[in-house]
Structure formats: structure tokens, C-alpha cells
């Protein structure tokens, strides 16, 4: 997969996990920024390792 696509996939995964975490603790307002940060981290890792493999 292209690094950019992997970055987008990582963002979506992180955001989903963050939002679900927000639901589980009953505070979606906290879950959203957690998801954004997690998404950035996962997206960066996935896109970087994806570009290393090409």
C-alpha cells in the first residue's frame, strides 16, 4: 500500500479506538482528542514502515 494510504488507515484506526475508548469511559469529548493523537502516531508509524518496505 502507498504510505499516504497507510497514514490515512492509521488515522482512521486510531480515531476509532479513541472514540470507542471515549464511549467506554462515558466521555466522548476526551475520546476524540485521544483518538486524533493515537491516529497520528499509528498513521505515522504505518506510513513510515510502509515507505521503508518499498
Amino acid at each position: 500500500m502507498q504510505p499516504n494510504l497507510l497514514f490515512a488507515v492509521g488515522i482512521v484506526i486510531g480515531l476509532a479506538v479513541g472514540v470507542l475508548f471515549g464511549f467506554s469511559i462515558g466521555n466522548v469529548t476526551l475520546g476524540m482528542p485521544t483518538g486524533v493523537m493515537l491516529g497520528l502516531l499509528i498513521g505515522l508509524i504505518m506510513s513510515k514502515s510502509g515507505s521503508d518496505q518499498t
Binding site: A16, G18, L20, F21, F23, S24, I25, T34, L38
Partner: peptide, 20 residues
């Protein structure tokens, strides 16, 4: 499934954030 997904997300975060 919704409950299961939230439990998964919490456990994933617990492991990942603690280890990073």
C-alpha cells in the same frame, strides 16, 4: 458487539500507550 468493541479499544490503549 458495541460493548466488546469498547472493551477492546480500552485494552488496546492500555497496552499501547503504556508501552510507547
Amino acid at each position: 458487539l458495541y460493548l466488546t468493541a469498547t472493551v477492546f479499544a480500552t485494552r488496546f490503549l492500555g497496552i499501547f500507550i503504556e508501552a510507547v
